[in-house]
Design a protein around this nucleic acid. Structure first.
Lengths: 234, 234
DNA sequence: AGCTAATATGTAACATGTTAGATGTTATTG
DNA sequence: CAATAACATCTAACATGTTACATATTAGCT
């Protein structure tokens, strides 16, 4: 594992964090969300440590964090596994997502500056490009970014991180759906409606379009169980 | 640290979790939220390990988790400190709390059974007793329990844990305010209004009373900075 | 004295050795 | 042959040794 020059951390002005455990965490999290590591698959800490060229300690630390996040399941003295999907957990995540993001967009619509709107529209332009060229992965990343930008626009420190963490379960399911997903054009339209409402400062319309958007996506997610039942627990 | 008989963990039916790191986590978290460990105070891992009769490993694991939760701050190669309060973080936590708990009470009011209502009213009766006998700590615990019960009544797996985690910052501030707090009677009235709305299945009224309740408390929290500025960062 | 560089110190981060418990397999017994 | 007990194996949990880095202190220089 080649780390990137080791950026310094200073006491008062805390910087990105470049510890090995953070790097391992990012790598594993990415691998899980992108389904490179499939739900139910065993994670052998020692092997991971070997592959990444670190000791077992940072790997364990990273996995503990992933367990808190609900992305892995640790069975003491037995093994660590990529968490299988659970419909009830996904339902809760979906609920939390709607609660947080509708509240966030309400604030965002109330207080958004023209610069913010421009950035949002910029993102939309890129989404159109990605949609035109059938670039699923690119579109997906821009989708996430748009939601993050709206969270940020609410102007609350740390809100994006909280929302993004609660979204990780849903992100994972969406990735698995990517291949089946044909909703890119519809999604784009919904995004456009959301941004338009923010630009118009139509607070209630922004909230309603966001709720509609997340709900529609939620319905998609539930279809995964019929398509890939082996990914689900219990 | 005397552990309680070591309850078994089985693969499919996962049980409470009795690892040392979980115990250390609970102990430290309690100590921080109850302000036994004051904001800004250093935590010496080795000392904690010694005091609890465990090695540094479970202590580090517990502290990592507390850091994720925002209750401690780890400065690499320097030290670990109980997180100082930050107005902006508290504001975000307050926002998240309103978003989650109003959404939760909406669902709870829609679907609450008569048994649930009875449990809530039972809690209220105990709150009245605690208020009569000026039992701040007891009242506070019942307050938390009431909010947890409402989360549970929404019928979403894991929602209570998420809400409770996001509330930890606020709980800490409330504890610090306990000695100044004279709002117990008013708080009780607000709780009664909330439960009454749920019992009546008046969804919108339940949501409104909950939002009002949390907002009023939020205003109290902000007064702490003028009373105890040394607890705050930046 | 004021500034900079060398050094000392303390801590988290990291590495690795050890233990205990969960589970699967094989032997043993009725 | 089935039930069960002994055992082997594997893994996370835990313990402890080592390293690197942030910071404070001191020494040396102008």
């Amino acid at each position: 594992m080649q780390l990137g020059s080791g950026g310094k951390n200073y006491r008062e002005q805390k910087v990105v964090a470049v510890t090995r455990k953070d790097q391992v965490y990012s790598i594993l999290r990415q691998a899980i969300i992108s389904s490179q590591l499939a739900p139910g698959e065993a994670i052998r800490k020692e092997l991971v440590a070997l592959q990444l060229g670190v000791s077992r300690t940072p790997v364990s630390d990273a996995i503990n964090r992933l367990a808190d996040e609900g992305l892995v399941e640790i069975y003491p003295q037995t093994g660590t596994f990529v968490a299988r999907l659970r419909l009830d957990k996904i339902e809760t995540a979906q609920f939390v997502r709607i609660a947080l993001e509708t509240a966030a967009i309400r604030r965002a619509a109330e207080r958004s500056s023209s610069e913010t709107v421009i950035r949002l529209q910029n993102n939309l332009a890129q989404q159109r490009k990605a949609a035109d060229s059938r670039d699923f992965e690119g579109f997906y990343a821009l989708d996430e970014e748009l939601h993050d930008m709206i969270c940020d626009a609410a102007g609350l420190v740390g809100l994006r991180e909280i929302a993004s963490k609660e979204r990780s379960q849903i992100d994972r399911v969406r990735r698995l759906l990517l291949h089946y997903e044909t909703r890119m054009v519809e999604t784009l339209k919904e995004h456009e409606a959301i941004v338009a409402a923010i630009a118009d400062k139509s607070v209630e319309r922004a909230v309603a379009t966001m709720e509609d958007h997340i709900s529609k996506m939620g319905k998609m997610l539930l279809q995964l169980q019929t398509k890939r039942p082996e990914l689900f627990a219990s």
